[in-house]
Amino acid sequence: MEREVILSVRDLEVSFPKGKGRFIAVRDANFDIYKGETFALVGESGSGKTTIGRSIIRINPTSKGKIIFEGKVINEKLSAEEDRQVIKNIQMIFQDPATSLNERATIDYIISEGLVNFKMFKSQEERKAKVVKSLAEVGLLQEHVTRYPHEFSGGQRQRIGIARAMIMEPKLIIADEPISALDVSIRAQVLNLMKTLQEEKGLTYLFIAHDLSVVRFISDRIAVIHLGRIVELANTADLFLHPLHPYTRSLLSAVPMPDPISEKAKELMVYTENLHDYSVHQPSFVEIAPGHFVWANEPELEQYRELLK
């Protein structure tokens, strides 16, 4: 079955100025996101997962490689019309609901900001109706339009952020750790809301997270990123059943178990870069099984193939 690719990232490199030189935050990132799926990027703090998300939405400039959205390269200078299309079609849900809302604006203004920018309404009545509809979709009430962000709880604020992105009717949503700043009791609520909206609207998500249990719940495919490099990419089931790269395995071994006996018996795998000997054979990003990519060199690939058998 041929699936439609909505976003491809090719040999992406993102670097930031650091002193006299440059710090490379992301290198050789390659992946495709298919239409309608949830693609997750997992990795530890500082691994570059947010940087990838932000360069797709064009907050961070890229230094090499291409980001292709619906067949068009978007990480270069675009015409005003193309720019509008990209802004409208790619939206982002931000990590921290405490800082991502304008405290001096009403909910009405916050949610309709994108609508106003793109003149996506014919009359003020239509705009208001759209705002109310979008609030209802995320479980908020019509009476909230005149309120200010500080009057809402963390979960409500995050849903306002979701409504603000959804009202643009985007095709791709980049969710940058959308639940990591939320209380555990409302994480499920927000995740379920995102899943429901995805089914209703046929959205595609790029889900950035560090919590493997969450990622396992929501995503179809997962890319594991370590120090700016994608080390493994596979279907969720494959990745959890056959983790190949030692970093993936160490990540999975660190997932806490809700059973004290097995938790005690659990063996943690510690990953260091010294595990690899790349002095003779250079590593590359290889498709070792259909849809299962891993960053490895020839001897390692042999080893991994043994594991897959």
Partner: peptide, 21 residues
């Protein structure tokens, strides 16, 4: 601040960023 990044992602022009944000 992050809410200004949000406004950029929503395509808000600079003039309105100054007056509203």
């Amino acid at each position: 601040r992050e809410y200004n990044l949000v406004s950029r992602c929503l395509g808000t022009p600079t003039s309105r960023m100054i007056t509203r944000n």
